[in-house]
Computed example of a mutant assay.
Amino acid sequence: MTVEKRPCVYIMANRRNGTIYVGVTSNLPQRAYQHREGLIEGFTKQYGCKLLVWFERHDTMESAILREKQIKAGNRKAKLALIEADNPQWSDLFEDIAQG
C-alpha cells in the first residue's frame, strides 16, 4: 500500500523548533500540498506551517486518529523528540512522499 492511500499522522512546522501542527489524513501527499500552498484556512495557514517534518503510517484510520490524539495530548518536548528522532535536520519530507 502506498503512502498516498494510507492513513497517516503527520507534523507540519514553520521552521526548525518553530510552530508545529499535528494532523491526520488518509492522503498525505495531497494534504501536505494543501498546507504548503496555504489552501487550508486555519492554524497552519495563519502560522505558516508549510514543512512536513514528521509522519507515521497506519493500517487503519482508527489507529491513526488514536495516535494523533496521543501525540496532541503530549507536551511540546515529546513532539519535538518525535521529529528529532527521525528528522534531526527538520528537512521538508514533502518531496520524499510526493514521489511515492
Score class of each variant (00 low, 15 high):
T2R: 00
E4N: 11
K5I: 13
R6E: 01
R6T: 10
P7D: 01
C8K: 11
V9M: 02
Y10A: 02
I11R: 07
M12F: 00
A13S: 11
A13Y: 10
R15M: 14
R16V: 14
N17E: 08
N17P: 00
N17T: 06
N17R: 03
G18D: 15
G18V: 03
T19E: 01
I20T: 14
I20V: 12
Y21T: 00
V22G: 03
G23K: 07
G23S: 03
V24L: 11
N27K: 15
N27L: 08
L28K: 10
L28Q: 14
P29R: 08
P29W: 06
Q30P: 11
Q30V: 13
A32N: 06
A32L: 04
Q34D: 11
Q34A: 08
H35V: 12
H35F: 11
R36F: 03
E37W: 07
L39N: 11
L39S: 10
I40R: 06
I40Q: 07
E41K: 13
G42N: 12
F43G: 03
F43K: 08
T44P: 02
G48V: 04
G48I: 03
C49E: 14
C49L: 06
L51R: 15
L51I: 14
W54F: 13
W54L: 09
W54M: 06
F55W: 11
F55A: 02
F55G: 00
R57G: 01
R57M: 05
H58G: 05
H58Y: 09
H58S: 05
T60I: 04
T60V: 06
T60W: 06
E62F: 06
E62P: 00
S63D: 01
L66M: 14
E68H: 13
K72G: 10
A73Y: 08
G74H: 02
N75S: 14
R76S: 04
R76Y: 15
R76E: 14
R76N: 11
K77Q: 12
K77H: 13
K77S: 13
A78M: 13
K79G: 06
K79H: 14
L80E: 10
L82K: 05
I83E: 05
I83V: 09
E84F: 06
A85P: 11
D86H: 15
N87S: 02
P88V: 00
P88N: 07
P88S: 01
Q89W: 13
W90S: 08
W90Q: 05
W90G: 03
D92I: 14
D92V: 15
F94M: 04
F94P: 07
D96H: 12
D96G: 10
D96V: 15
A98L: 12
A98P: 01
A98N: 13
A98I: 07
G100M: 06
